[in-house]
């Protein structure tokens, strides 16, 4: 068992005077995709934001052994953390090319990889990101994280509100990304999780209620039902 890339211990976060992350403890292994599951509004997004220092937080967070819970967001990111936020958060007034240029951190950003994965973006490089479709915006958001050589990727619901075909495309891009760095993935789509995830962390009401092997959980529909309140497709069939 190798050292985990990210260790989160007793993470708590408050937003607007309200505690949105109660007490979260989990590890992210140094390889593969760790999926964060949970019902709507339980604090998945807030957990990622707290990890990045976008929300005021307490607790201990280490990235490859180094404490990062006191660092500012930009410092954490420069330690090698890529972030794909929940609602894409592309800069609407900037062109696609400018969005990508802004994200370039490394001396030799991986422009070819991004161009291969998202040929559409190359064609649309002069278009304002605000005028892109939701799927295209998601590609910009993913591309921003993939341009640099990261040690960890934090990806928040990349398939939210996308058509099934685009979901497949995004999943492929994520698989590609997971080959280069471990991924912490918040995702609601169980098919995507089935395809990508190796480990799962389930959050409820701001706390971790389950961690373990992804395949094991997915094989246990009752447990999924209990933890997430959803029926898997096999269960329904």
């Amino acid at each position: 068992m190798t050292e985990p890339i990210l260790r989160v211990t007793n993470l708590r976060a408050t937003v607007a005077g309200q505690q949105v992350v109660e007490d979260v403890t989990f590890d992210v292994p140094a390889t593969g995709v760790t999926a964060v599951l949970g019902r709507n509004g339980v604090g998945k997004t807030s957990t990622l934001k707290a990890l990045l220092g976008l929300y005021a937080r307490t607790g201990e967070v280490t990235l490859a052994g180094e404490r990062i819970d006191r660092l500012s967001t930009d410092r954490i990111v420069r330690r090698g953390v890529g972030y794909v936020p929940e609602d894409r958060e592309v800069f609407a007034g900037l062109t696609v090319a400018e969005n990508l240029r802004l994200a370039e951190r490394d001396a030799a950003p991986r422009r070819e990889l991004v161009a291969d994965l998202f040929p559409d973006l190359v064609r649309r490089s002069a278009q304002r990101a605000g005028t892109l479709s939701g799927g295209q915006q998601q590609m910009v958001s993913l591309a921003r994280a993939l341009l640099n050589d990261n040690r960890l990727l934090l990806v928040d619901e990349p398939t939210k509100g996308l058509a099934p075909k685009i979901v497949g495309q995004v999943a492929t891009a994520l698989a590609e990304a997971a080959a280069t760095a471990p991924v912490l993935l918040v995702e609601q789509n169980l098919e995507v999780i089935e395809r990508l995830a190796t480990t799962v962390v389930v959050i409820d009401a701001g706390r971790v209620v389950h961690t373990g092997d992804a395949a094991e959980l997915l094989d246990d529909p009752d447990r999924i039902q209990r933890l997430l309140g959803v029926h898997t497709s096999e269960n329904a069939a």
């Binding site: 990111v77 958060e89 900037l94 802004l102």
Partner: peptide
């Protein structure tokens, strides 16, 4: 300029600029 780019992006969404590793 790159600073100009950062400023335009920051006017839109400052938090996301820092989340790209930029010290605004």
């Amino acid at each position: 300029t790159r600073f100009g780019l950062i400023i335009r992006a920051g006017v839109e969404n400052r938090a996301m600029v820092t989340a790209l590793g930029i010290d605004v």
